[in-house]
Amino acid sequence: MTHPSTDTIWDWLDQVPDPEIPVISLVDLGIIRDVEWVKSEDGDELKITVTPTYSGCPATRIINQDIETALRKRGIDRLSLHRQLSPAWTTDWLSEKGAAKLEKFGIAPPSPKGQPERCPNCGGHDLEKTSQFGSTPCKALWRCKSCLEPFDYFKCI
C-alpha cells in the first residue's frame, strides 16, 4: 500500500495552527520533532514525535487533538503520537517564517539578546519590560515608550 511521503505530512502539519497563537503553525513553533512511517504487522503506522513548549502549557492536549484531527481528515487512520522531553524545546526552533508572522501579528519574536529587537507596532527601540510573564507561558509583557503601546514578547528559552 502506498502512503503519503513524510514531506507531504510535514506540509500538512505546517497548515495546523498553534491553538494559542493561530498565525503560526505547529511546524513554525518547532514542536514537531519527527515524522516517520513505522512498519507493523497490520500495515504502516505514522509516528509523530511532539515536544511540549512548557511543562504546564494547557495547549498541549489541544495540540495533540489538532494533529490527530488534521491527519485523520487527510485519510491517515494508523497514527500514534509520542511525547519527547529531551532535547527540551527551545525558541531557536521557531522557524524564520514563523518569527516574521509573529511580528506582523504584533508579537515581538524571540531575540538572542534576550529582549525584543524593536516594537512590533511602530518599530521603535525605546522599550521597557512590564512583566516577565504574559498571557501565555511562552510570552512576556513589554511596552514601547515611543508609541506607548503594550505588546507581547515571545521570550527566549
Binding site: 511540549p52 512548557y54 511543562s55 504546564g56 502549557c57 494547557p58 510573564f133 507561558p137
Partner: peptide, 8 residues
C-alpha cells in the same frame, strides 16, 4: 504562570 509550570 509559575504555578502552571510547577503543575506541569
Amino acid at each position: 504562570n509559575t504555578a502552571l509550570d510547577m503543575i506541569g
